[in-house]
């Protein structure tokens, strides 16, 4: 346990060193932490405060302000269902319900085996492809409910 802690600290110091410990780079540092852990673990956030000499409260304010940061563990594949106007009109809500049934979780939750996290996003910027779902950064365009089980199977492998 102790060694795991020190390992994490060295890892964090490396990330902070990338930005020369600059306090104004807090967002970039948090982004790199999220990249490494998939989310922002509480213990690491506390370390960020200590290492960078920033009050923990400030770190927490930034971490909770931006939607891009997650304080709860996320799965290996993040499934983002677009709920922008175009996708909504094209029935994205049905896709979301189908995904909820298929993955057996509610929107915003992570599956028990930590392979999928289901999220809703406002707009992915490709409304002409509506309705879209982004999984692991890949856009799935003109998606229908029938296609969902096959697509998920590919990511489960």
């Amino acid at each position: 346990m102790e060694t795991a802690r020190t390992d994490e600290r060295t890892k964090l110091r490396e990330i902070i060193a990338r930005y020369h410990g600059e306090k104004s780079s807090l967002i970039a540092i948090l982004q790199d932490i999220q990249e490494a852990y998939n989310y922002l673990p509480v213990a690491i956030l506390k370390m960020v405060g200590q290492e960078m000499d920033i009050p923990l409260m400030r770190v927490y304010e930034v971490a909770t302000f931006y939607n891009a940061f997650s304080l709860t563990p996320r799965g290996k594949n993040v499934v983002e269902v677009c709920a922008g106007t175009a996708c909504h009109v094209k029935g994205a809500i049905n896709l979301l319900e189908n995904l909820e049934r298929e993955l057996e979780i509610k929107c915003g939750e992570t599956t028990k085996d930590e392979t999928f996290t289901l999220e809703q996003v406002r707009c992915l910027g490709c409304c002409s492809l509506a309705p879209v779902v982004r999984i692991d950064g890949n856009i799935h365009a003109y998606l229908t409910q029938q296609q969902i089980p096959d697509i998920l199977r590919n990511y489960r492998k």
Binding site: L56, M57, R58, Y60, E61, T64, F65
Partner: peptide, 16 residues
């Protein structure tokens, strides 16, 4: 203390 979260869920309080 500080303000955490944003929009309608913004609240005042200590971290976490």
């Amino acid at each position: 203390i500080g303000l955490s979260h944003r929009g309608p869920s913004k609240t005042v309080g200590p971290p976490f």
